[in-house]
Design a protein around this nucleic acid. Sequence first.
DNA 1: ATGTATTTGGTACTTTAGTATGAGCCTTAA
DNA 2: TTAAGGCTCATACTAAAGTACCAAATACAT
Lengths: 137, 137
Amino acid sequence: MKKTVLVFALLILALLLLFQIGKYATLTNNLRFEIVIAVIAVVFFFVGVYINKKGLHKNINNKQEIDHQKIKALEITDREYEVLERISEGLSNKEIGEKLFVSESTIKTHVSNLLSKLNAKRRTQAVQIAKDLQILE
Amino acid sequence: MKKTVLVFALLILALLLLFQIGKYATLTNNLRFEIVIAVIAVVFFFVGVYINKKGLHKNINNKQEIDHQKIKALEITDREYEVLERISEGLSNKEIGEKLFVSESTIKTHVSNLLSKLNAKRRTQAVQIAKDLQILE
DNA sequence: ATGTATTTGGTACTTTAGTATGAGCCTTAA
DNA sequence: TTAAGGCTCATACTAAAGTACCAAATACAT
C-alpha cells in the first residue's frame, strides 16, 4: 500500500514535469510538438503495462506459493514431506525408497504417519488435501 | 495475429489523429496545451493496461484449460474420464462406484483401461500424467 | 547425561488396487 | 441387421498399499 502511494506520487510529479518541459520546449521552438506528444504517449503506455503487471503478479503468486508454516503446524517432518512430494509424482513406495536410498518399510511408515497427519485415508486423497492446503503445488 | 495487426494499425491512426487535433487546437488557442497532454497520457495509459491484460490472460488460460482434443486422441471415453476425475479427488474404487451408482468391479475395469491408455502403472501416476497433458486441472 | 523427536527398519496382518478373462446389454453406424 | 464401441458386472488372481507394533541409531537441547 505504501508502495502504491509512492508510485502514484512519482507519477504525478513526472506528469507535471513533462507538462512544463513540453510547454517550454514548444514555446521556444527547441522541440517539435509531435515529439513531445510521442514521448508522453510512450511513457504512459509503459506505465500502464507496468502497473497492470504488478497487480496481476500478486494474484498469480498467491496461488502458487506453498505454505511452509502450515506444514509445520501439521507437524509434518522434512522426510515425510519429501515422501509426500514423491507420492504426488505418482511413485510407488518401492520407487520412493529407491530414490531416497531407504527401504520400502521406511516409506510405509512415513506414508502412514502422513495420512494420519493429513486426515487422509489414501495417498491420492493426501495429495488432494495437501494441494487444498497449499502445501503442494 | 491478425487481431494484433489490426489493433496496432488503429493505434497508429489514433496517434496521428491526436497529433493533428492537438496541434490545430493549440495553434488556434481553442484548447490548452496541458489538456491535450493529459488526454494523450490517459489514453495511452489505458492502452498499455489493456494490451498487457490481453497478453497475460492468454498465458493464464493456457495453464488452466483442459485439452478435450487430447482426451479424444487418447481414446479416453466419457465414463473413464469421470472416473479419472474422481481418482484425482482421492476417492477409492468403492467410493467412486457409489458416487456413479455402479459396482466396484466396473470402476476397476475403467481404471485398468485408463492406466493403459495413459501409460501409467498406478492411479497416482495417472493423475500426474493427466495434469501434464492438460487433461486435468 | 537424560529426554525428545526424527529417521530408519522389521514382522505380520488386512485392505485396496490392479490384471486377465469372459460375458451380457445398449446404442449407433454401415 | 450385423458389427463395433461403450458400459456394465463377475470371478480369480497377483501386487501394492496401508495398519499396528516394536525397536534401534542419531541428533539436539536442557
